Computed example of a mutant assay.
Amino acid sequence: MALLLPLLAAMVVCICGSVSSLGCNLPHNSVMLSRRTLDLLDQMRRVSPFLCLKDRRDFRLPREMVDGVQLQKAQAMSVSQLVLQQTLQLFSTDHASAAWDETLLLQLRSELFQHVEALQPCLVQATGGDRSAEDPSLALRRYFRRIHLYLKEKKYSDCAWEIVRSEIMRAFS
C-alpha cells in the first residue's frame, strides 16, 4: 500500500500545482474537495475493519505508475481523472446503493463528479487532444477490474465493501 503515496503525489502536483500553470480553471477549493471526499469515505464506514481482516486483498496498484516513474503532466492528469472516474463508477452501482447510506453515497458521487468535471478541460489542454500520451491507463483499468471482481467474488458483502472503501481511501489520502 506504500505504493499509493507516489500516485497521490502525482495527483496533487497535477491538480493543485501544474494545472494552474496550464491556465485551467480548476476550482481553488480542489484541495477542500479532496478533503471532503476523504471525510465522506470515512463517514461511510459501517463495519469495523478489524472484523474484515480475513477478507483483505492486495489489489496491486500498477507499479509502473507509481514506482519511481515520473509521470508527465498529461499522464498525471490522465491517471488522476481515471482514478476519479473509476471510483465514481464503482460507487454508482446498484450494489453500492444497497451497501451504503444513500445520502452519503449521493454526496460522494457528487464530489467525485465535480473532480472529474473540473479536471476534464485541463486534461484536454495538457494533451492537446492527443489521448495516446496518457497511457498507463490500461494497468489502472485492470486494477479497478480486480476490485470489481473481488466485490463480485465476495457477493458484495459488508466486509468486501469495507475493504474496498479502505483501499479507495488509501488511494486518495
Rank of each mutant, 00 (worst) to 15 (best):
R170Q: 13
L151M: 08
G68P: 08
A74F: 01
S78A: 09
L33H: 08
D130Y: 06
Q86C: 05
D101N: 12
R142E: 14
P27H: 02
E102V: 14
L149S: 11
L104Y: 04
T93F: 04
A2M: 11
P49L: 11
L3H: 10
K152D: 15
Y143F: 09
G17Y: 08
L151Q: 03
Q85K: 05
K54E: 15
R165H: 08
A9T: 14
P121W: 06
L149A: 12
L3C: 15
F172N: 05
V164T: 03
A171Y: 02
R35W: 07
D94M: 10
S30L: 13
L51Q: 06
P62R: 02
L151E: 03
C14T: 03
Y156V: 03
A118I: 08
L82P: 00
L61Y: 10
M32H: 05
T93E: 05
H28V: 05
L3D: 11
A76E: 02
H28A: 07
E111K: 06
R131Y: 04
Y150G: 02
L3S: 14
F172A: 04
F59C: 06
G17H: 14
H28P: 03
S20R: 07
R63Q: 10
C122Q: 00
R131T: 10
I147N: 02
D130C: 09
E167L: 05
K154V: 06
A9P: 04
L3M: 14
A99W: 03
L84T: 14
A98K: 08
D130Q: 15
C122G: 01
C14N: 03
V69I: 09
L123Y: 06
L22R: 01
P121C: 06
G129P: 00
T127H: 11
Q89T: 14
R63A: 10
L140T: 02
Q72A: 13
V13H: 08
L51I: 11
A10L: 01
P6D: 07
D42Q: 12
T37D: 02
E117I: 12
A74D: 02
F50Y: 13
H115E: 05
R165K: 09
